[in-house]
């Protein structure tokens, strides 16, 4: 069980922000911190990892204080048994996959774990390659394996899949779910992707301006409020073209770029880069199944 009760003043582009968090995460949970960038999600992970120090409060993991401002306890990162996976893989470029994993071992660790991870995460054929010879998805699998070398009980994931394409993301999400199960981990994911959180997490915290705005299961947080009878997307205007008396907006929504028809009145006040909300009733969609092969492409 992780007891988190921390406060930290953050400086951001929009000024300063008071990060305030008080919650408990049960052993074995897969939870997410969700929210816009600048909400403080990454800082929370970094405080748990010991890479940043809270201004006050405590972090207690299974009864052991990792941080306690009153008792002046602050374990260094190396003393906290965690695995951390970042968006950029941060592998050593001059070491092979196997060497990258071995390098993470510390004195007294059983080196057999390296072989076990190579097997479990399916890196056998890549074991002797250098990171530069791997695809983004393969590099991230290596980074995931490396995070597990020290047999952590707690895995911290900071937008680990956001640099990957859709198909690869899907695949690695399955992989993460498997790893979480197999190693009996407690996993904390930072993500701004509702579909990812849906697939992986039992519970999430929606952060806004450094505070928990909502907490609940993915369907409690996303379905009731956001989807129900309509599609609601938040996107960014990339281009505006006029076509007779209507306009075509090119909009980036997540990783997709779509063209949307807008009338003069809807276009008013929009410029390139404007954030917009697009709502559509759920009556229109034409639905057809896709085969596994389609998804792989």
């Amino acid at each position: 069980m992780i007891e988190l009760s921390v406060k930290k003043r953050l400086l951001s582009a929009e000024g300063s922000l008071e990060l305030m968090l008080e919650t408990t995460i049960e052993e074995g949970e897969f939870i997410a911190f969700f929210g816009q960038s600048g909400a403080g999600k990454t800082t929370i992970l970094r405080m748990i990892a010991g890479l940043e120090t809270p201004d006050s409060g405590h972090i207690i993991v299974n009864g052991t204080p990792w941080f306690d401002s009153q008792k002046r306890i602050n374990l260094p990162p190396a003393k906290r048994p965690i695995g951390f996976v970042f968006q950029d893989y941060a592998l050593f470029p001059n070491m092979s996959v196997k060497e990258n994993l071995r390098f993470a071992l510390q004195k007294g660790d059983n080196p057999a774990i390296v072989e076990e991870l190579i097997e479990v995460i399916g890196l056998r054929e890549l074991a002797d390659r250098l990171p530069a010879q791997l695809s983004g998805g393969q590099q991230q699998r290596v980074a995931m394996a490396r995070a597990l070398v020290r047999r952590p009980r707690l895995l911290l994931l900071d937008e680990p899949l956001s640099a990957l394409d859709h198909a690869m993301r899907h695949k690695l999400q399955d992989e993460l779910a498997k790893i979480h199960q197999r190693f009996g981990l407690t996993t904390i994911l930072v993500s701004h992707d509702p579909s990812e959180i849906f697939r992986l997490c039992g519970r999430l915290y929606h952060l806004e301006q450094g505070c928990i705005k909502k907490a609940g299961t993915p369907s409690e947080i996303f379905v009731k409020e956001k989807i129900s009878s309509s599609f609601k997307f938040v996107g960014e205007v990339l281009a505006i073209e006029q076509c007779e008396m209507i306009y075509l907006l090119t909009v980036a929504i997540g990783t997709q770029v779509v063209k949307v028809m807008a009338t003069e009145r809807e276009r008013e006040g929009l410029t390139i880069g404007s954030p917009i909300q697009i709502v559509s009733k759920a009556f229109h969609p034409i639905i057809s199944p896709i085969t596994h092969d389609d998804r792989e492409q």
Binding site: S228, S229, S230, K281
Partner: peptide, 10 residues
Amino acid sequence: AFMLGKPDEH
């Protein structure tokens, strides 16, 4: 107007 979802969701 048609609406999807149960009334108590709206």
